[in-house]
Design a protein around this nucleic acid. Structure first.
Length: 878
RNA sequence: GGGCAAUUAGCUCAGUUGGCCAGAGCGCGGCGUUCACAUCGCCGAGGUCGCAGGUUCGAGCCCUGCAUUGCCCACCA
């Protein structure tokens, strides 16, 4: 087949993907007896489009899974999408606002219907984009976090945790987002620095400071450190009357070690309802708590004349009032403090006390390795004891530190999109309440005095369901409909779960280590008694070309993979994303990298073009090595294949790709293909090409498969995607070494003739049989007039080889080369001296490993021989 | 406040357990195009591996300190 001159990816990629899908090569086979390899794809949020970040993880995981298939494993890469409760909910609410309505007006059912419609459309787009990236996932097992079977798993885990007392419902201080009107977890908050005014007010006999005067209406406790001498005369429980915003209040003195005597005046008033630290102080001393700000961010009636005002509006007015009362002592306008913001929706978080559902991380209720442990302890244990390995290892510290600071996890959300909390309540006329938690709604038994069961209106944190992802996706969906089966039955009877769990590796970004990875470990160990995965590979973020974050506020900084792919090809994008990139480290987007990799695809393409034209008329055959070059390329191929194989297995993708890149470009294209033009070995060329295509396939699946399909005797049934890692024929090391010498001679010849402008030179040599055999080759590669064997003669001797070779360059021209020789001589002398002095060092001889010493001796011997040659040449010039 | 990382060629970055004269891509200088590829070939220049100590026969790599940059966590009213 005639291939066009350059590789045009857009012409082949979609057909190639369709070919793979048709062949079924991506489908896992739990019934097989092969070794397993499984990855759960981190489900992208169904918000519409894939980013470069998605492109990166799809590439990394695709490399792993394609390579696992090449190793003959039964590989499962399970794809899916996430309902992304908060993100999608916020998006739909924004749409409604723009249409001049809101969710309360249209109602829960209509809202959910509309959201379902939106995500169904997004999902289609996104799945298409995953295919465009070449992702070889098992589409027959596509999952969605809101699937019925997954919902069953969510309810099972909720129930199991509830029964174990790990999930409880209680009044706790939570992070409230007044914009989205929901709680968010600690991890979903980001802090931004803000400059504010720091006010100091007179409060009875004390001075107190605050940046938030609007929370101070209900303050009736002053707190100070028990050992603060300045306030020693005040005792815990002392009361006094202070003039305050809306008149006098009676305040009580409290002593607590949470107060930092060095900060401000060392005295503060507390607002337990709207501050976590204050809440904890209030709990310790059994103090009253009062709500000041409502859930819409407006002041409550306690604020008197300010009631109903949003806090931003009220703040200056309150300050003004206190000033007029003469209570304002100081204003510091340069106060820098952190403001907590919801990562989604950017609402300013207002701590509130609220009745919510929590996961208790400190209750010893988990049966792990025969002991009752807390969720925290299990989280620590599995990483500490090596059940789970993090790559890179340094994230283990980050992980442990996070666990140390971990508080109970608030899992209920006041949004509509998501898994509904599986709890029902009913109320008695006497005011008592009954709670029911279960997989299915309770039946109304019409008991006297009780009203009907009502389901909790809240939904669960998205991460509660994605925490189950590695195994909830492996539950057989049919079995999950059968409620006579327990969760354990489901696990035992689901073939996929039995075959693929725990998954081999979890590959994801370090930025969701806490959100997701840690929570998968938490929930999965609890629910199944197994870890979710054995290895966690964490990749870094992709930043803009200037090293800053890609951000919506700078639209020009965002690169859309779908803009890159048509122009440069998916393969180029994939390789650009892994080239020179190490785990856990961020990378900057670079157009030069993508060009380099597009060029690499073209290089592969043209190697194939050449080989196909050179082997058109020959029989396929096995490909026996004949020439020195043949042996050399086989040796290099073997070494490269081994290294790539090992590096991929050990998650060193950049290294693996580097090896491939240099083998293809430096060894195969620059030397072997050129050599084969003199002494063609078509069968071997063909087999080398096939091996290379297999080795390159995990990195560049499209171009390699496109080429593969053009090879003689290939049919659509034989895709490259299903080929096993190549077996390389044995090569003779001695002959390979001969070709290395040829390379050395050619390189030096090129250097000399280039720097002297001496074209058409002739190379002579004496008594070297393998050089005679490679004479034509040297002549061509060195662009020489001739290469000839003679007994002796004059000219410019080569110094990089111990064989006697010289170029027929006359003394006058060669004289210009004297400086080069001199430099070379000095370098070589330095090298010999270094090696010699190392060997004369007695402690080196006695302490360094023998093989290292031997190596040094050999090096010295070689260096000495070369030095002799150079100095001989140098003397001739003198 | 606590922690993690980075600092290597003009730029962006590799360098796996310490073992020869430190690597890549891009960029730069020179030469080159019938014969797979100008998305190309050939030749070359360019680095006291942030600074200062230490351990070692031997340090870009290990230890200590310092400097600069980035990030994470916590958060004091």
């Amino acid at each position: 087949m005639n291939l066009p001159k350059t590789y045009e990816p857009a012409e082949y990629e979609s057909d190639i993907y369709a070919l793979w899908e048709k062949s079924g090569v991506f489908t896992a086979h739990p019934e097989s007896h092969k070794e397993r390899f499984s990855i759960s794809m981190p489900p992208p949020n169904e918000t519409g489009t894939l980013s470069l970040g998605h492109a990166l993880f799809l590439t990394l995981q695709d490399i792993m899974v394609r390579h696992a298939r090449q190793q003959g494993k039964d590989a499962l890469w399970l794809p899916g999408t996430d309902h992304a409760a908060l993100a999608v909910n916020a998006l739909i609410e924004k749409q409604l606002t723009e249409e001049g309505t809101d969710k309360h007006q249209i109602g829960r059912e209509a809202f959910l219907a509309r959201t379902r419609e939106f995500v169904a459309a997004s999902r289609g787009t996104m799945l298409g984009q995953m295919r465009a990236m070449g992702a070889s996932c098992d589409w027959t097992r596509l999952r969605y976090t809101l699937d019925d079977a997954l919902n069953r798993c969510v309810n099972e885990v909720f129930l199991k945790m509830y029964e174990a007392g790990v999930i409880y419902r209680g009044h706790r201080i939570v992070n409230w987002d007044p914009n989205l009107e929901t709680t968010v977890s600690d991890d979903e908050m980001i802090y931004t620095e803000e400059k504010a005014t720091f006010y100091t007010f007179k409060y009875g006999p004390f001075e107190i400071s605050t940046a938030r005067p609007e929370t101070k209406f209900g303050d009736k406790y002053v707190v100070m450190h028990p050992h603060d001498k300045r306030y020693a005369k005040y005792k815990e429980g002392d009361t006094f009357v202070a003039e305050w915003i809306n008149g006098p209040v009676t305040a009580t003195v409290i002593k607590d070690e949470a107060v930092d005597p060095k900060f401000g005046t060392g005295v503060m008033t507390i607002t337990p309802w709207h501050d976590r630290t204050d809440f904890e102080i209030a709990e310790r001393h059994s103090l009253d708590k009062e709500q000041i700000i409502d859930f819409h961010g407006k002041l409550l009636p306690i604020a008197g004349e300010f009631a109903g005002m949003p806090i931003t509006e009220a703040r200056p007015k309150i300050v003004e009032k206190l000033r007029q009362k003469g209570l304002l002592i100081k204003e510091d306008p340069g106060y820098i403090h952190n403001v907590a913001i919801n990562e989604r929706g950017k609402g300013v978080i207002e701590p509130q006390i609220k009745l919510q559902w929590f996961v208790d991380v400190n209750k010893p209720a988990v049966d792990w390795n025969g002991k009752q442990r807390t969720l925290k302890e299990v989280l620590q244990s599995v990483v500490r004891e090596g059940d789970i390995t993090l790559i890179p290892k340094r994230f283990e510290k980050v992980y442990f530190h996070w666990i140390d600071n971990l508080r109970d996890w608030c899992i209920s959300r006041q949004i509509w999109w998501g898994h509904r909390v599986p709890a029902w309540y009913r109320f008695h006329v006497d005011g008592t309440t009954e709670t029911y938690v279960g997989l299915t709604p309770p039946i109304n038994d019409g008991r006297e005095g009780w009203n009907e069961w009502e389901q909790d209106p809240d939904t669960l944190d998205t991460w509660f369901s994605s925490a189950l992802w590695t195994w909830s996706t492996l539950i057989d969906p049919e079995l999950a409909n059968d409620y006579s089966l327990t969760l354990n039955d489901l696990l035992k009877q689901s073939p996929d779960y039995q075959a693929y769990h725990p998954t081999t590796v979890m590959e994801t970004g370090w930025d969701i280590l806490f959100f997701w990875v840690a929570r998968m470990i938490l929930s999965t160990t609890f629910a199944t008694g197994e870890v979710p995965f054995k290895t966690v590979y964490l990749h870094g973020l992709i930043r803009a070309e200037d090293g800053k974050k890609m951000s919506k506020s700078r639209p020009e900084s965002i690169i859309d993979p779908l803009d890159v792919i048509p122009k440069y090809g998916t393969d180029a994008l994939r390789m650009a994303l892994i080239m020179g990139v190490t785990p856990g480290n961020d990378q900057n987007w670079g157009w030069s990298k993508i060009e380099a990799n597009r060029n690499f695809c073209n290089k592969l393409w043209n190697i194939a073009r050449y080989i196909e034209s050179a082997t058109a008329d020959s029989d396929a055959g096995k490909g026996e090595p004949k020439t020195d070059a043949d042996h050399w390329i086989l040796l290099k191929l073997q070494q490269s294949a081994d290294k790539i194989d090992q590096d991929i297995t050990n998650f060193r993708f950049s290294e693996a790709y580097g090896t491939l890149y240099h083998f293809v470009w430096d060894d195969l294209a620059d030397w072997y293909v050129e050599a084969s033009k003199i002494a063609p070995n078509p069968a071997l060329l063909n087999s080398v090409l096939q091996s290379v295509l297999i080795m390159a396939h995990p990195f560049a699946p499209f171009v390699t498969e496109t080429i593969w399909q053009t090879l003689d005797g290939k049919t659509e049934e034989s895709t490259l995607a299903q080929q096993l890692w190549p077996e390389i024929p044995k090569a003779d090391a001695k002959q390979a070494e001969h070709f290395e010498t040829v390379k050395t001679i050619v390189s030096e010849t090129r250097f000399i003739t280039k720097s002297l402008g001496a074209s058409d030179a002739t190379l002579y040599f004496t008594d070297v049989p393998f050089l005679s055999q490679n004479a034509e080759l040297i002549k061509r590669l060195g662009q020489l007039h001739d290469v000839a064997e003679v007994q002796n003669g004059n000219g410019l001797y080569l110094t990089s080889t111990s064989y006697r070779c010289w170029l027929d360059i006359d003394q006058a021209t060669a004289r210009e080369f004297a400086l080069q020789i001199e430099i070379k001589l000095k370098t070589q002398q330095a090298l010999v001296e270094r090696l010699a002095s190392r060997l004369s060092n007695k402690s080196y001889i006695s302490k360094a490993p023998k093989e290292v010493v031997e190596q040094t001796k050999d090096q010295l011997k070689d260096a000495q021989i070369q030095l002799d040659a150079i100095s001989k040449e140098y003397d001739r010039f003198k």
